[in-house]
């Protein structure tokens, strides 16, 4: 777990500022003990991060160069996961595909999630006209199913990683805002928010200190789900031929064409990229769940 070591300053501050708290390392360790599934998730996510960031060193072959002497070869010592229809090494493409997945997954989730969080909490907190206006705008955006909005965006701007990110991020915003709002709505009525308001605390302070932490649990579930959803949405777009394009190595793209054409005759082409997607999203979700349990303010240090 050495890779999960926090940096020094963070350790210092938590040790100095909050002497009664355990150190982050201890907390990470206790997290691993308490949350074996979360740890498994963390391992999967870390594996993906390492693969993505270190692809240049890990991948045995160039992921984009064709080798017509080795087309659709089954897994072997030379090609541990086999080769695809262009003779490209599948392991190398999956390793480099992790990088694309990181870029697409995290960018979409973070941008979409944060914008959604702000809109959702603000909408619930201010209520009245603001809430009404936000809700109408969000309703309109929500009315476009993710994949339909994405189809239109890609048709307008064309394919490519940036456009795929735009296409996936836009529809995530209202989904986040709505769920956050519904959580925040129940909290708004809780006495301590009223109390905070009567104490004359500012909007920003109430929102940030009281409401945001209270919607953090559903938000984090969503955020982790979003990373997964973005990766899955990219796969769906690719399946429709409108995602990331050849020869960029991307998991969803690798399932397009290959998965269907060779599912029976060269199943490794269909199976391994699918597994890469499934395991990564699986890991992210496990980790997200565990993180939620660990971070839930009502649960912490109890």
């Amino acid at each position: 777990m050495s890779l999960a070591l926090p940096n020094e300053t963070l350790l210092d501050r938590s040790a100095a500022g909050r002497p009664f708290r355990r150190s982050l390392l201890q907390r990470v360790l206790s997290f691993c003990v308490r949350e074996p599934m979360g740890t498994l998730g963390l391992v999967l996510v870390l594996a993906m991060l390492i693969a993505g960031l270190g692809a240049d060193w890990i991948a045995p072959y160039n992921p984009t160069s064709n080798d017509f002497t080795a087309m659709t070869e089954p897994p072997s010592w030379a090609h541990p996961l086999g080769t695809d229809q262009f003779g490209r090494d599948l392991l190398s493409r999956i390793v480099f595909g992790a990088r694309t997945a990181i870029i697409v997954g995290f960018t979409c989730a973070i941008v979409g999630g944060v914008v959604g969080l702000v809109l959702g909490v603000a909408s619930a907190y201010f209520g009245g006209g603001v809430d009404m206006l936000f809700q109408r705008v969000l309703d309109v955006m929500m009315a476009f199913p993710l994949i339909i909005m994405a189809l239109a965006v890609v048709a307008i701007f064309g394919t490519g990683v940036q456009n795929v990110i735009i296409a996936i991020t836009i529809p995530l915003i209202p989904r986040c805002a709505r769920v956050v709002r519904s959580s925040a709505l129940s909290i708004r009525e809780v006495p301590y928010i009223d109390a905070a308001r009567t104490c004359g605390l500012g909007h920003a302070r109430i929102i940030l200190r009281h409401m945001v932490p209270n919607v953090m649990a559903p938000f984090l579930i969503l955020l982790t789900a979003f990373v997964g959803q973005a990766i899955l949405a990219e796969a769906s777009l690719s399946y429709l031929g409108l995602g990331v394009q050849e020869p960029v190595p991307a998991w969803g793209l690798m399932l397009q064409g290959g998965a269907e054409e060779y599912a029976s005759t060269a199943p490794w082409i269909a199976i391994f990229p699918g597994l890469a997607i499934a395991l990564t999203v699986f890991g992210i979700s496990l980790f997200g769940d565990a993180l939620r349990d660990a971070l839930d303010p009502k649960l912490r240090d109890r």
Partner: peptide
């Protein structure tokens, strides 16, 4: 169930 692309599941 959430992690598996549904079209992939369908194809398989």
């Amino acid at each position: 169930g959430i992690a598996t692309p549904s079209f992939w599941l369908g194809i398989i």
